[in-house]
Design a protein around this nucleic acid. Structure first.
Lengths: 142, 142
DNA sequence: CTCCATGCAAAGCCTTTGCATACCG
DNA sequence: CGGTATGCAAAGGCTTTGCATGGAG
């Protein structure tokens, strides 16, 4: 959480970080690559991946491995959970304070020393719910 | 949940299902492939994947997409969560009843109609905890 | 006998990596 | 100027898929 991340801040790294922080969605590496490339056409996919991992390691962003699909990158760096719409694929943040209690339960049950946890809720987002009621069947993306 | 899954039960499918149900760990498709191949040397990787997805669809087993690694397949078909050891990679089941409460919180916060949820706890398993105390540094698998 | 599942192999994603060069500090 | 980040391209891991053949009901 210090201002100086202790890494060499190059043009590309700054651009990648800015792109993640500018997005209010959870971008994949591919999407970030596309966006950064609009400004820096010569940037390489490898650079994007290397940088994203570096930034995540330094705590400037958060990586969220998303099932069997591509990892998403989140500008939020605090612990939180996600809700995934199985109809349109939307992915939004959610804060579930009671989840903290679950860690104790998990620790007691397994003997593990719990360091973190991540919950993914699946369901139908408000937009898709409306689409269904309207008789339209929503975009059945997947 | 009926006894008859409504699928043609071939030799290969039966073997794959049996292998998942015989395992007390969470196998990857690759591991299942290896095990089944001991008995049916000509089985194809493609068959294993197709069958695993079919079985999961029919509710005979459960697929658990595991971060950026290979999916794991679980003989348990009921909802439950997992604890992952970041030191040795062990993955065990855990039941966190309080998590049900979290669904209401998530629904209230996002307006989603929540259908399911999955929590992954990360931490250090009892074995690795012991290894550390013994001065040995555990198998730092990853 | 008909339809579906299998085997095989190639291809598809996402991601990582080796290497020479360019660039930051 | 020295060390490191970049660009490029190839490779790596997991998974999916097209097609002809073989097996199940």
């Amino acid at each position: 959480m210090r201002g100086d991340p202790g890494i060499r801040m190059t043009t590309q790294r700054a651009a990648i970080l800015a792109e993640v922080q500018a997005a209010d969605e959870h971008l994949t590496a591919g999407e970030i690559f596309e966006r950064v490339r609009r400004k820096y056409p010569t940037i390489a996919y490898g650079t994007v991946y290397r940088t994203l991992h570096l930034l995540a390691e330094r705590g400037l962003i958060q990586e969220f491995p998303f099932g069997d699909q591509a990892s998403r990158f989140d500008r939020r760096t605090d612990r939180h959970d996600h809700v995934h719409c199985t109809s349109c694929g939307a992915l939004v943040d959610v804060d579930v304070p009671s989840a903290i209690l679950a860690r104790q339960v998990a620790a007691d049950q397994t003997g593990y020393e719990i360091h973190g946890h991540q919950t993914v809720f699946t369901g139908i987002c408000p937009d898709c719910q409306r689409s269904r009621q309207d008789g339209r069947d929503g975009r059945d993306n997947d």
